[in-house]
Structures are given as C-alpha cells and as structure tokens.
C-alpha cells in the first residue's frame, strides 16, 4: 500500500516479464511438435498447462501488481485459483473415471 502509484519494477522489469511470456509461448509451440504420449497419456497437455501456469503466475504477480498488494488481495487471488482447481478436479473426476465404473 505504501509505495502505491510508482511502477514497482520499472519499464525494464515489465519488458523482462514480457520477454518471459514470449519465450514461454515459443516453448509451448516447440514442445507441441513432439509426441510425449510415450511417457504417459496426456503428457503433452500437462506440459502445456505447466508452461501456461508459469506464464500466468508472472502476469498475476507483476502485471497485476499482486506481489505488492495487501494480504486480502493475495487471499482473493489465491482463492480464484483454488476455484479454478475445483473446476478442473471435478471435471476430471468425470473423465478419468469413465473407464473404471460402467460406460
């Protein structure tokens, strides 16, 4: 709250984060060219999601200034992702169990 108003990490910092995002995008593309399914089914998706999650963390922390925000804002941001996790988990609870019981 105290140092509100200034740009925290300055323009070079923002360009640095931007560079990380671009690199992440390139890696996503590059990894998608390989078939990773031999490791375990769905490995490609998992890798893509991991990269996406890393990129998103940078956006939230720096572009959205959460890193310098109050505990309440942290709580809100974290619960947002907790909710996303609920959505993924309960949806997967359907997909991953289709072959186990019935159909």
């Amino acid at each position: 709250m105290s140092e509100h108003g200034d740009t925290h990490i300055g323009l070079p910092g923002y360009f640095g984060v931007f560079a990380i995002l671009v690199v992440g995008t390139i890696i996503t593309y590059y990894v998608a060219l390989f078939d990773l399914e031999w490791i375990f089914p769905g490995a490609n998706t998992l890798v893509a999601l991991l990269i996406a999650f890393t990129k998103m963390t940078f956006v939230v922390l720096y572009f959205m200034h959460v890193r310098w925000s109050s505990k309440l804002v942290w709580l809100s941001a974290v619960s947002g992702f907790f909710w996303l996790a609920i959505m993924f988990a309960y949806t997967m609870q359907d997909y991953l169990t289709r072959s186990i019981i019935g159909r």
Partner: peptide, 14 residues
C-alpha cells in the same frame, strides 16, 4: 453442478 448431467454421459462415479 454434475447433477445436471446424470443421464448425459458423465461417469457413474462422478
């Protein structure tokens, strides 16, 4: 939310 999908092809476990 899955209670809207009981008969639409969702797994029985879900």
């Amino acid at each position: 939310w899955g209670h809207h999908m009981f008969v639409s092809g969702q797994s029985i476990y879900a």
